[in-house]
């Protein structure tokens, strides 16, 4: 069993909602990238989504765009990100790590090489935003190496397609809560709840909801019907400019702890 499946099974058994923070790898500081991952776990993360910086993040809002730009300017590349996961794994053998990013860095690195190195580093899954199911034949080496292919579903996804996506979903299905880019805030929990119910009628995989979750209140609303919530832009924004490992850990704790509490109080 993969770490992702194990983690969701454990959450289900405990009746808890998963907390999935997203951070851009190497932001706010490449030096403290591994410390940041440990801090996330320390503050209650059940799974870490680690963004691989890309120069042209078409699906991201300004907060993650800028984080990506800062990381690239600091010289962060895919090899660094894989190195950090390997280092993280030395102390944390259990928390699943999913790399999230765009196709070009992986394509240029080479799919087979990426798959081998990622598995070796201890990566559990990959969510490549600009690689929809229709184009995912190129990702075969990743699946063969044992990486879970995390798929997105969106409010615009048509019913037949949704059924299709649900069937192909591995690890968990990531439901994008509104049609837009990361970091915008337009949550309508009733709509999302209805869509998630739809997804559940097709999917056996757990459902994580992301885009627009910013705080304890919005997380708690989502937790009523999702297996996990993803929090990205609001966290990345909070971390920007932090310079020491202690400051990073302190900001992570201050931001995530109330969310963890709200999820557990459900």
């Amino acid at each position: 069993m993969n770490r992702i499946d194990r983690r969701f099974a454990a959450l289900k058994a405990a009746g808890r909602t998963g907390l999935i923070p997203f951070v851009t790898a190497g932001d706010p500081s490449p030096e403290h990238a591994v410390a940041l991952m440990h801090a996330l776990v320390g503050a209650g993360a059940d799974l870490i989504e680690l963004g691989v910086p890309f120069s042209d993040p078409m699906a991201d809002g300004p907060v993650i765009q800028h984080a990506s730009e800062r990381a690239i300017a600091a010289g962060v590349g895919l090899a660094d990100v894989l190195g950090w996961v390997a280092q993280f794994r030395q102390q944390d053998p259990d928390t699943p790590v999913v790399l999230m990013g765009y196709l070009n860095p992986v394509e240029i690195h080479g799919y087979v090489r990426f798959a081998q190195e990622a598995v070796q580093a201890g990566v559990d899954g990959a969510l490549l935003v600009d690689c929809p199911l229709e184009e995912s034949a190129v990702l075969a080496p990743l699946r063969e190496a044992g990486l879970k292919q995390i798929l997105l579903a969106a409010p615009t996804t048509a019913p037949e397609r949704l059924a299709h996506l649900c069937k192909a979903a591995e690890g968990f299905l990531y439901y994008v809560s509104f049609a837009g880019i990361t970091g915008a805030a337009r949550l309508s929990t009733t709509d999302i709840a209805a869509r998630v119910a739809d997804i559940r009628s097709h999917a056996s995989a757990p459902v994580a909801v992301g885009f627009g979750v910013r705080d304890a209140e919005s997380a708690k609303a989502i937790a009523g019907f999702a297996d996990a919530v993803v929090i990205g832009s609001a966290l990345v924004e909070r971390l920007a400019g932090a310079t020491s490992a202690a400051e990073i850990a302190q900001r992570v704790q201050a931001f995530l702890a109330p969310i963890r509490t709200a999820l557990d109080a459900r």
């Binding site: 600009d130 184009e135 615009t156 996804t157 048509a158 994008v176 049609a179």
Partner: peptide
């Protein structure tokens, strides 16, 4: 029919755009 010119082309976009593109 998938918009491919040999190995080039295709639709490499986020899920949200798949429906409007269709």
């Amino acid at each position: 029919e998938h918009g491919r010119f040999g190995r080039f082309g295709g639709s490499y976009v986020a899920e949200t755009l798949m429906a409007p593109l269709a």
